[in-house]
Design a protein around this nucleic acid. Structure first.
Length: 505
RNA sequence: GGCGUGUUGGUCAAUCGGUUAAGACGCCUCCCUUUCACGGAGGAAUGACGGGUUCGACUCCCGUACAUGCUACCA
């Protein structure tokens, strides 16, 4: 049987780290087994639906290089791929469940439900749930006479369809990561399957679609584990037990400080991204920063995510996507959640910057440099020359500007205090003399520059260290950057002289 | 509260009954570097707790604690 996996997000907002990791594991599994990776949009919640989120999710997958084989815009033979467009299918199967006694109509209003829960809470030992202990006190097709149910239905009374969870049954499922997990059906509540608006809930939709789309392996977050018994029951009641996918409930990605699931808020609070790419909420117009815009290389981002909850046991940490396809093993995924460490994430990006070739890096860094320069057509030749000089000290793509702006523009802020502190006539005379020599020279390369600098230092009875730092500050503005003479060579004679004279007068 | 899941240094983690308990990030020291980094060499730091099982337990079992997830006509 052909392996088929799916990523099934709700289009409600930005794409979270954990979501991308789920995509990645799906993708790796599909590629390794010659299977299909499907993107299905779970847009059944009309209240939380956000326009543009679907396109955004696809853009994120594209940026990450994890594109699906089938999706709403690349339909395969199981179209449509949006649940809102499959609405009629769910109603059909919900009806079947009712007919066969595995589900029932419920007419309770929101107030009814609230009242029931309030009543139940008074008794400390009971749990406010719509289940076998309470359903016979509610208004549904199990308690109402058949003709009354028919009348209500004919009158168009709003209703939902709930699963009738059987009593005294142990529901067991085998998880590829956790092994056998079992639940007591007496503690599982009668989940709503079909909502009053005719849309299915996740529980019904995921089962119906996984079945119809012939999904063989289902990866999802650990938060779904508690509702897994409902899904297993549905697979059984619909008569599809033999086709049920193999489950894998992925560990959660936790916040770095304290505990709990990593959320967008944590990123805002701690100053790192949580979403793959910038996300602008269409309602509030508020933009949340993404890994892409923060300056991550997609391959580094993906690599980092792979190592969050998985490793190949050898200690290797840097893997290409192809290597991951080859080595990824769902059985080696951890059971426990992992706290997200932004420092480590940056380390991965630093690794990728060191291993990416200079031409490619220049292209990646160009947008950030152009933005700072306020131009749109930067000379990539110059950037390519600069890249190898500063890549060691760049962790994120914007660092190419931070570390190399003086190659493109005369420094705007110069740490003059660091020069003036120990300034004296001797140094003043040295620079005057040396710039005089520079004016006359035609050999503008770092080696000759350094030689003439050394000679002049000796002539003036100075130590090289006395004037190296001032020269550096004149050229770059501060105490950082690659070798000064190399910088002078790159920025050229005119610019070098200009920067020195700006300080020495 | 109930149910589920989990627990090796600050963080990510290897180990799958016998090791001086790897490695990485971060941190500290030193070297390299007349800047800042990179790099190199060192260092501090770990099996939640209590019972079993076993010749032997980080590893298996039970309990406790703690953490986390779920307990919506949200996913």
């Amino acid at each position: 049987m052909k392996v088929r996996v799916r990523f099934a997000p709700s289009p409600t907002g930005g794409l979270h780290l954990g979501g991308v990791r789920t995509v990645l594991f799906n993708y790796l599994f599909a590629r390794a087994h010659g299977g299909d990776f499907v993107l299905r949009i779970e847009d059944t919640d009309q209240a939380r639906f956000v326009a543009g989120a679907e396109q955004y999710i696809m853009d994120c997958l594209q940026w990450c290089g994890l594109e699906p084989d089938e999706s709403p815009v690349k339909e395969g033979q199981y179209a449509p791929y949006r649940q809102s467009e499959r609405k009629h299918l769910y109603a059909e199967y919900a009806q079947k469940l009712v007919t066969e006694g595995n589900a029932y109509y419920a007419f309770d209003t929101t107030d009814d439900l609230e009242r029931m829960r309030r009543e139940m809470k008074k008794d400390e030992h009971s749990v406010p749930q719509y289940d076998k202990t309470t359903r016979m006190q509610m208004r549904n097709s199990l308690t109402l006479p058949a003709d009354e149910v028919k009348t209500l239905l004919d009158q168009g009374t709003p209703y939902v369809i709930r699963i009738k969870v059987p009593a005294d049954k142990t529901v067991t499922l085998t998880d590829m990561i956790r092994g056998e997990v079992s639940f007591d059906s007496n503690l599982v509540d009668d989940k709503v399957l079909l909502k009053a608006d005719g849309m299915p809930t996740y529980h019904l939709a995921v089962v119906v679609d996984d079945y119809l789309m012939k999904i063989t392996h289902a990866f999802r977050g650990e938060e779904w584990l508690p509702s897994a018994p409902v899904h297993v029951l549905l697979w059984e009641n619909l008569g599809w037990k033999e086709s049920m996918p193999q489950w894998a409930h992925l560990p959660l990605i936790l916040k770095p400080d304290g505990n709990g699931k990593l959320s967008k808020r944590d990123g805002d609070r701690l100053g790192f991204p949580v979403y793959a790419m910038n996300w602008t909420d269409p309602k509030t117009n508020e933009t949340t920063k993404g890994f892409r815009e923060m300056g991550f290389i997609p391959q580094a981002f993906v690599n980092m995510l792979a190592m969050l909850g998985w490793n190949d046991g050898t200690g290797q940490e840097v893997f290409s996507l192809d290597e991951l396809v080859q080595k990824f093993d769902i059985g080696r995924v951890h059971k426990g959640g992992a706290k997200f460490d932004f420092e480590k994430a940056k380390w991965f990006n630093h690794q990728y910057i060191q291993h990416t070739d200079n031409e490619e890096l220049a292209k990646l860094a160009a947008p950030y440099v152009e933005k700072e320069l306020g131009i749109g057509n930067l000379d990539l030749g110059l950037l390519s020359t600069v890249v190898p000089l500063i890549k060691d000290r760049c962790t994120l793509l914007p660092d190419f500007w931070e570390q190399g702006h003086f190659f493109f523009r005369t420094p705007t802020t110069i740490d003059e205090a660091a020069i003036k502190d120990k300034w004296n006539d001797q140094k003043q005379q040295f620079f005057t003399a040396w710039t005089g020599i520079l004016t006359a020279t035609d050999n503008w390369n770092h080696q000759d520059l350094e030689n003439s600098f050394n000679e002049e230092v000796t002539k003036h009875g100075l130590k090289k260290g006395d004037v190296m730092l001032p020269l550096r500050i004149m050229l770059v503005g501060g105490k950082f950057g690659p070798g000064v003479f190399v910088i002078a060579e790159v920025i050229g004679k005119e610019e070098t002289m200009k920067r020195i004279k700006h300080i020495t007068g």
